[in-house]
Design a protein around this nucleic acid. Sequence first.
DNA 1: TAAATAGGTGAAAGATGGGTGAAAATTCTT
DNA 2: AAGAATTTTCACCCATCTTTCACCTATTTA
Lengths: 221, 221
Amino acid sequence: MKILIVDDEEMIRSVLREYVEFEGNEAYEAADGMEAVRLCRENDYDLILMDVMMPHLDGFSAVKEIKKSKDIPVIMLSARGEEYDKLFAFEIGVDDYVTKPFSPKEVMARIQAVTKRSKSKPVGNEIIKFEGLEIDMAGRNVYVDGVKAELTPKEYELLFYLVRNKGIALTREKLLYDVWGFDFYGDDRTVDTHIKMLRGNLKDYRKFIVTLRGLGYKFEE
Amino acid sequence: MKILIVDDEEMIRSVLREYVEFEGNEAYEAADGMEAVRLCRENDYDLILMDVMMPHLDGFSAVKEIKKSKDIPVIMLSARGEEYDKLFAFEIGVDDYVTKPFSPKEVMARIQAVTKRSKSKPVGNEIIKFEGLEIDMAGRNVYVDGVKAELTPKEYELLFYLVRNKGIALTREKLLYDVWGFDFYGDDRTVDTHIKMLRGNLKDYRKFIVTLRGLGYKFEE
DNA sequence: TAAATAGGTGAAAGATGGGTGAAAATTCTT
DNA sequence: AAGAATTTTCACCCATCTTTCACCTATTTA
């Protein structure tokens, strides 16, 4: 098993590495969220141990970014008393979390549990329907009145994001950050163009994508 | 929640029943499509777990028949490798499907997902009410006696700000600074005009926006 | 009561924002 | 390497929104 350890403290990384390797795994290290994201783009890991508080890019944002392209189990490491939203953690797909200071043994036990669990993780085939618009996020399929709509990758991402946040007003900035990624530094109007394309592909159901003048867009049933 | 389990194998039915009841739901059983259709005519269920392959009347045909009169969420149970037309499943209104052999846990997760989805239609967004005035900040919606009020961006911003600070006296200067932005160097009376427009759009509920002579405005319940 | 002050109002000029199409840049295929 | 597909930028245009301002009415004060 290839395990990526992400923490800004060299000491913690080396302690974890020792135990991870002792159990017969390969350990890799990253000193902050940014580096973790970069490494995950280029390599495949079986599990990530991710600290919450780090310079440059915090653990949550990093996980969010990584989970966009790869579904890797994640265990968060947080300092005792560090307040964070567990529900939020669950939403972005964190599998478990450990509070510092932790015993390495405890971490190893969590690793065992998570990897065993994720192996039997079911694949979702959830189908969401809005009138004649059918959306299968897991299967990356969208049907317009029963006919498969051929969307580009960005269009799928954008639509899925809008649907996941249906009824909520989303600014262009938020869309760019969450759909395009924190590292996208481009024009706001990029969103407009993709919305245009998406609307074109949704035919009659373009009505679900509502423009909020002066703000952005939202998906509304 | 009343859940109807439809499968010709007694074993599968009882396993599912156990889990369904464990989660605090009422379980009902049918051994084939025909029986399921009959039961649905006479009773109301909140969800149906329907096997595809069954004697007398298969799952698809049964669902098609049931959906004619009642819109009940359906999760299909299909054997691995059983080939069937997913598009057809979409069309007749199947909400999700699970492949056998499945872990009961998996099925329960799907049930949760499907029911949560159909329940959370009112998006769970916080809607603040003042008599017949409903305000949904996340969704950028304002309803006056149930009718959507079409506000301009500034009007939304202004109203939301007033409501967030309800009961608090706000000077024109503070409103300009917080709603318009620190970099706005314009006339005080701009606020007046927007208040006017806002009041016009709130109809009877204009009364909530109180003028404080010599000071500014406040929102008061 | 008259004058002074503050807020309400309507109209009109000016600014802004978003849809759109096309072209440029990038990425993916062959 | 060339070609195709996709993403991104950008400028134009029009509808909408914002802001100002002059005038009016209401309230307060002298």
